[in-house]
Design a protein around this nucleic acid. Structure first.
Lengths: 182, 182
DNA sequence: GGAGATAGTGATTGGTCACTAACTTAGGCT
DNA sequence: AGCCTAAGTTAGTGACCAATCACTATCTCC
């Protein structure tokens, strides 16, 4: 039951990813996160300075995990082969919707923060996203245009999955056999 | 000052698009919308059955306007020419972020609703999105794969703009001179 | 000019939420 | 055993929010 603060923080991040993904920043109460962790709600504020910090931590973790999945899926490969493996892995990652929606929630939160005059989370998000892009680019062999296409199809997948189009819907027909993704 | 109910509803939708885009569904209070319209908060509930209905109306309008912009930009054209004009117009539409973010907010709300067991807004969103796709496809000449690519790049643009990457950032380098978008 | 309809408001309510302060419990170390 | 530190809780606060109800103002047509 009793854990170190560091271990608890880890549990909080995992719980937060689930809840924020499903209900968004404003739609998720700290109470909900605490219940999922199995801890009292005020204790979260000992582990993190505030709700925003929990969200930021969850978002960072989300992007890091995306790279981890890409990395493991394409280890030892390059070029088209690496891209194909990463696409396949991305489809699996995104399937249940949780990872995907945390990503989307980050995007809307970044914009909202910028509108509110702060851009701290935006800077973090751009840095992480840029790093992810560069890592994928290296892995597929340095082609910028190809990497851009990879990410473009990935973002379309995000949208179609978020909207809930079933996989046999004709809107998916335009995806070639290569299953372009990212 | 005094308007017909229909005119007021129109003002409410326009105000709601701005507020929902900036702050999301949960982050926007009916009070905020009412203040922007210049009307008392309870009156919104005479014009719409509830907050959700206002959001849905704003989201529908958002997708409809996207087609309107595509349509006007590519009137009388087909194929690559039409696609290029629509891409250009999309960049303009998305530039200020408002239209873009309303779109994004719709995506996350659809997912959240589905998670909550209802999928009414999801059905509406898929129908509108499907129609938009088909209309674009007709305009560019019936090529499914090309249309898919068009939308893929559009979704990537959404992401990059939402994250706040300035237009001269190298992450935009992979966009060819054709300015693929959608 | 008055009546009926339509546009619009003020007050309120039951509920939720992020965050704080003060307190209690458990484990490691001598 | 006993102490000290870190983990964790209970109780509470001020702010906000969607929705309802009872009410008022204004327009239109006879």
């Amino acid at each position: 039951m009793r854990m170190s603060a560091e271990e608890r923080r880890e549990s909080v991040i995992r719980a937060a990813m689930i809840e924020f993904a499903r209900n968004g920043y404003r739609g998720t109460s700290t109470e909900t996160i605490a219940r999922r962790v199995g801890v009292s709600q005020p204790y979260l504020f000992r582990l993190f300075p505030g709700k925003q910090a929990i969200f930021t931590a969850a978002a960072e973790r989300c992007i890091e995990e995306t790279w981890k999945v890409f990395d493991e899926a394409s280890a030892g490969l390059t070029g088209e082969e690496a891209a194909a493996k990463m696409s396949e892995a991305y489809m699996g990652l995104v399937e249940d919707g949780e990872q995907l929606m945390m990503q989307m929630q980050l995007y809307v939160s970044v914009f909202a923060s910028r509108m509110a005059g702060e851009d701290e989370i935006g800077e973090t998000a751009r840095r992480l996203w840029g790093e992810l892009f560069e890592r994928v680019r290296e892995r597929v062999g340095g082609d910028v245009q190809g990497t851009t296409e990879f990410f473009a199809y990935g973002m379309l997948i995000n949208t179609l999955v978020a909207l809930g189009f079933p996989r046999d819907h004709r809107i998916w027909d335009g995806f070639g056999e290569r299953e372009e993704a990212g």
